[in-house]
Amino acid sequence: MFSKIMVPVDLKHLDRMQKSLQAAADLARLYSATVCYVGVTSAEPSELGHGPGEVADRLADLTKTEAAKHGHGGASHLVISHDPTTELDKALHETVGEIGADLVIMATHIPNVTDYIWASHGGSLALHSRASVMLVRG
């Protein structure tokens, strides 16, 4: 039913993503799909590395670990954004088309009052993406 599953990853908060990573691995095995782990970062140095290259390496390491652990095909895709805080939704939406994902599995927070002011990233993607989107509450 699905051939390419996209999993947006926040490398700074991997502890909050275990459920979505597990769900992606289970569904990938069920449908023999490959999983593409997607990160969005800026060009500026961050706690993840001195530049995008180091962040890409971290994402690749995560991909290798998950693929080896769960036995599915894995790839990673890093988007370099001028302003990740505000451009994340657009970056994820464009990446779905770029990598040809047919299912997105994404960790998201429990809804709260701020969702009335600005939508969650998962909610925004589900609203606009043509691919199926599965939101996993953290």
Partner: peptide, 26 residues
């Protein structure tokens, strides 16, 4: 925005630069 596929780990994409070696983490 620019995207890059990375299946086998990639080299630093922006060419050589003289990174300062500091113990501080952002």
């Amino acid at each position: 925005m620019a995207g890059q596929d990375n299946t086998q780990g990639i080299p630093v994409p922006e060419g050589s630069a003289d990174i300062i070696d500091t113990d501080y983490t952002i």
